[in-house]
C-alpha cells in the first residue's frame, strides 16, 4: 500500500541562497585556477581579485536573506558541527590571503589562497549534504558534484577574465569532464535513493535543466576544439562552463529542493480492520 505524496518544495531558501553557492563555487574555482596559473608563470591579479569578489558577493546575498542581519556575527558560534559556521570562518582569512597577494604581492600567500578556497568550496558542498530535510541535497554525491562544478565554473571564468593558454584549456576540459562524471554519479545516486519524483523531473527533465546540460556539453566541445587548435573559442567555452553551472545550482537550490514529506510506516488498526504496511 502506498501513501499519498506529501513532498513539497522548500520555501526557506531562494535565489539569494543559490547566489551564495554560485558565487562561492565560481569564486573559489577561479581562485584555485589563478593560483595554479600563477605557479606556472606571471599572472594577472584581476582573476584573483575577481574570485574574492565572487565569494563576497555570494556571502552578501546570504546576509540579505537571513532574518536578523545585524546578528550575522552569530554565524561564527558553532564550528563544532555546523558547516555554515565553518564556511563563514574560512571566508575572512581567504579574502585576507587574496588581499595579501593582490595588494602586497606576497607570493607566500598563494598556497594559502588555494587551501582556503578549497576548504570554502568543501564547506559549501557539505552544507547542502547536511540538509537532511531535502533528499536532493543530502545525497552524498552532491559533494563531489558541487566541488567539480565550482572548479569547472572557476576555470571557465579564468578563461573569460584572464585569457586562455593551452594549459588552462586542458585544465578546464578536465574540470568539465569531472563535472560530467560527478553529475552522472549524482543522478544515479538520486535514483537509487528514491529521491522525490518532482526533484528528479526538475533536475533531469525540465527545460532549464536541459538547457544547462546542453551548455555544459557545448562547453566541453568548445574546449576540445580550442585545445586541438581547430579554432580559439575559449572565451565562449568559459562563459558556457560558468553560466551552465550557475543555472544548475539555481535549479538545485530553488526549484528542485523538495522535502521528503511526512510519512507513516503502518496504517492503524481500526474496528475489525487490520494494520497495513506502507511502502517506502
Amino acid at each position: 500500500m502506498k501513501q499519498m505524496n506529501t513532498s513539497r518544495r522548500q520555501r526557506s531558501w531562494d535565489l539569494r541562497a543559490a547566489a551564495n553557492f554560485i558565487g562561492g563555487g565560481t569564486g573559489t574555482g577561479l581562485l584555485m585556477a589563478s593560483v595554479v596559473a600563477a605557479a606556472f608563470g606571471p599572472t594577472t591579479p584581476v582573476t584573483m581579485a575577481a574570485g574574492a569578489v565572487f565569494v563576497m558577493l555570494g556571502l552578501s546575498m546570504v546576509w540579505l536573506e537571513i532574518g536578523k542581519p545585524w546578528r550575522a556575527l552569530h554565524v561564527f558560534f558553532h564550528p563544532q558541527t555546523s558547516w555554515m559556521t565553518r564556511e563563514g570562518i574560512i571566508a575572512g582569512p581567504l579574502v585576507a590571503a587574496v588581499g595579501a597577494w593582490v595588494v602586497l604581492g606576497l607570493s607566500a600567500a598563494l598556497p594559502l589562497v588555494f587551501v582556503l578556497a578549497a576548504g570554502f568550496l568543501f564547506c559549501q558542498a557539505r552544507m547542502l549534504r547536511a540538509s537532511r530535510g531535502i533528499p536532493a541535497w543530502k545525497q552524498a554525491e552532491v559533494v563531489p558534484f558541487l566541488i567539480a562544478t565550482g572548479v569547472a565554473e572557476g576555470t571557465g571564468m579564468m578563461a573569460v577574465l584572464g585569457g586562455s593558454s593551452p594549459a588552462l584549456v586542458g585544465f578546464a576540459l578536465a574540470a568539465g569532464l569531472a563535472r560530467e562524471a560527478a553529475w552522472w554519479a549524482y543522478g544515479r545516486g538520486l535514483a537509487r535513493s528514491h529521491a522525490p519524483k518532482a526533484s528528479m523531473d526538475v533536475l533531469m527533465k525540465s527545460a532549464p535543466a536541459m538547457a544547462c546540460r546542453a551548455a555544459q556539453v557545448a562547453a566541453l566541445v568548445l574546449w576540445l576544439a580550442t585545445l586541438s587548435g581547430v579554432t580559439d573559442v575559449a572565451l565562449l567555452a568559459g562563459l558556457l562552463a560558468a553560466v551552465s553551472g550557475w543555472g544548475i545550482k539555481a535549479l538545485l537550490i530553488t526549484r528542485a529542493a523538495f522535502t521528503r514529506g511526512p510519512a507513516i510506516a503502518m496504517c492503524p488498526v481500526r474496528g475489525r480492520g487490520i494494520g497495513l504496511p506502507i511502502e517506502a
Binding site: Q10, G67, K68, F77, S82, M84, G133
Partner: peptide, 30 residues
C-alpha cells in the same frame, strides 16, 4: 547545522531555540 547555537537540547530531550541567538538563516528548517 545551526550556526549560531540557537538550537539546543535539554537533558530531558526537549529541543529548544534561543530566540536571542537565532539569525533566521533557516538552515535548521532545511
Amino acid at each position: 547545522v545551526c550556526p549560531s547555537t540557537a538550537t539546543g537540547q535539554r537533558k530531558d530531550g526537549i529541543v529548544t531555540i534561543d530566540y536571542d541567538l537565532c539569525i533566521g538563516c533557516s538552515y535548521c528548517a532545511l
